[in-house]
Design a protein around this nucleic acid. Structure first.
Lengths: 251, 251
DNA sequence: CGACTTGTTGATGTACATCAAGGTACGTGG
DNA sequence: CCACGTACCTTGATGTACATCAACAAGTCG
């Protein structure tokens, strides 16, 4: 359960970045590619369970997820934990820390991860030299804000069943964008405790809620695989809308 | 309860913007000032109670608040409402709508407001010509994200009393930055229904919770004025930290 | 003045948390 | 192979924080 060393060898060249090949991500101009390639310091591998960004720490780095899942969270002194959002391949980590000098949340890996590490000091250079990438960063920040808005609505005003259905639809549609689903199935590297801490519920009540959704034929979640057995039904009960499929930037 | 007409006369010239005079806001370079002044199309006045940004509408404009308070919110089809955040002078409105073409939330005025209106089409020009302003926009987006993180933690994991205390501390410290407080007092243009919809509570329970906090000597809230009669006590019970007083951009 | 909004309080109901116990699967070391 | 520990899931009993319902008081506005 640790954070690996910085790797520069074996590092994926940005020109061959596997994420770029996904339909959802827009392609780079030569100028953008050149900057990003020079911006990337190396790669970092993180073991499952490792917390690689710490609330209150100021040594904030700037990452992009090449592979693996993680979650952002905050805790209260007595241990209560709130998961804020999940971090999937193509997502940006550490913007807050880079702009405000100190991260107000932590990030923990749900699976083994590979991160692209960037020089935080050069972010200003990015803004002045490659405005199109600066624009992309803002786009990603606005998208994160939208997800938080939806999440807040769910936790504040939805019932337990609606919340769980909403979370599953949300994660499923994000994984789908990345080609990580098969039919109505998805490997979910979460425990019910994660779901509980995401939705503001207790562990036990989360369990009972999941069972109820399963009994209603909405979902099935066994041995790490989630099946949306009635995706439309779940959509209806939560008014879930997939995000508009705008072409999405990466970095 | 309506949205006023666009005004260009009587408009405050950006060089004399009253917000700039506040210690908290950084000052403009001549270049920044020139761009912002040309970026500003005019001013808009909005009456109290008017919803001037609509969830799902695509005619998203780009505003900055010159004066007045508002709140961002989302609703479910059956009427449940979640207030996402409050919008105070110096805040940016409509970034999501400008980048994503469609706003996923609504904004309603809590008081009469004056907004500076910008040309949304020229935001790209801003990014390419004045990167320092682009950086500021990202800063504001990251700050909004931080507030949402805190809010989510409160709604998901705090008790009712902690939530109310947290909200009051939050609003008080934001108003304080703007010089809108007097001692431990603040004019709050909210009803208890707003507090309830912010914190994921019912109206009645919100009322009882406020009474309990008042009975404990933490706060007083009478005829529109909030007094933090024991700010340190409230801080302790919520672990509230004022944001680091970084110099803050405006636009 | 009545109509309406906002705040307040008590009675009752329920969704959720907490507590307690046990079950299954999977690992480890002997 | 078994004994043991641990992580995760499941279920029932009980407790409580919160929602809902109802009624009324006080202030505001036409």
């Amino acid at each position: 359960m640790r954070i690996g060393d910085l790797t520069t060898k074996n590092s994926v060249p940005c020109a061959q970045c596997p994420l770029r090949k996904l339909a959802r991500f827009r392609s780079f101009t030569p100028e953008q590619l050149a900057f990003v390639a020079s911006f990337k310091v190396g790669e970092l591998t993180v073991e499952r369970g490792a917390t690689f960004v710490n609330e209150g720490s100021n040594s904030a780095h700037l990452y992009t997820v090449l592979d693996g899942w993680a979650f952002r969270y905050k805790t209260l002194p007595d241990g209560r934990r709130q998961i804020l959002n999940y971090v999937l391949p193509g997502d940006f980590i550490g913007l807050q820390g880079s702009l405000m000098n100190e991260s107000q949340h932590s990030v923990e890996a749900l699976t083994p991860m590979t991160l692209c590490l960037f020089e935080r000091e050069r972010i200003w250079e990015l803004y002045s030299k490659v405005p199109s990438l600066a624009f992309d960063i803002t786009w990603l920040a606005a998208r994160e804000e939208q997800m938080l808005d939806d999440h807040l609505l769910a936790v504040g005003r939805r019932t337990a069943q609606e919340r769980v259905a909403f979370l599953f639809l949300h994660l499923f549609s994000r994984a789908e964008e990345l080609g990580a689903t098969r039919g109505n199935q998805l490997r979910l590297p979460l425990t019910q405790q994660h779901v509980a801490d995401t939705l503001g519920l207790s562990l036990v009540h989360t369990n009972k809620t999941i069972r109820k959704l399963a009994a209603r034929g909405m979902i099935r979640w066994q041995s790490g695989t989630l099946s949306l057995t009635n995706r439309n039904g779940a959509r209806e009960m939560t008014n879930f809308e997939s995000p508009p499929d705008a072409v999405r930037p990466f970095i």
